[in-house]
Amino acid sequence: MSEKINLTLKVWRQKRGEAGGFKTYEAKGIDTDASFLEMLDVVNDEITLKGEEEPIAFEHDCREGICGCCGSLVNGKTHGSHERTTLCQLHMRHFKDGETIVIEPFRAKAFPVIKDLIVDRSGLDQIIAEGGYVSVKTGNAPEASTTPIKKELAEAAMDAAECIGCGACVAACPNGAAMLFTAAKVSQYALLPQGHPERTQRVKNMVAKMDELGFGNCSNEYECAVACPKGIDVKNIARLNREFIKATLSQGK
């Protein structure tokens, strides 16, 4: 059964191009069946009608845990603290009446804050642009059943392909690394035969881009996997490393 709770929010507010800081808000009479973002909607309505400042800017779209738009640090944890749950799927029943909640944007050098809780994650797209695809032109494809693919491989590829590009792995990583994200894409194509013709270039270029953009270096601490709302596994990072070593060894071949 749902009930109403009162909360105190400490929210990171930052205007475009200025330094930011925490500000405190009261969230009163929040229904425990509401989602975290719906709670923010309620607070924003109040801020709007009060008219003293702008509502809290935060990114969201699908509110079903699939588009990858949402995400903030909630009490120091990316997407809040529930395993395999995006922020939009986190519900208020997990909070206690009277609790103080600290809300901060995802932090990483490669994710500059744009405004309040909104950060720029375009670096992730730039990594994909370096080879996170199969270069097949429309019209080139053979009949779909030409190449059978072992079910286990297809499933493993799907495990990796489930990444929603939310960037929580980067924000949770003590090094601000984008290894889990990059590894997920590299793995998907390393597992499937369609990805093989380009695998050497793909891994090298994607890793080089990742470094160039200021993402950090993996130190195998696995915070990314704990944070990932889609349960992307660190075995993909091992696979990325293997792909990278193979690509290096096949230098010039």
């Binding site: 695809y133 199969v134 097949v136 429309t138 019209g139 080139n140 494809a141 053979p142 009949e143 779909a144 190449t147 297809a154 499933e155 590829a157 799907m158 392909a161 998907q188 194509y189 499937l192 369609q194 990805g195």
Partner: peptide
């Protein structure tokens, strides 16, 4: 056909 060639699992 096209989507399979793209590596969609």
């Amino acid at each position: 056909d096209h989507c399979v060639a793209q590596g969609i699992p």
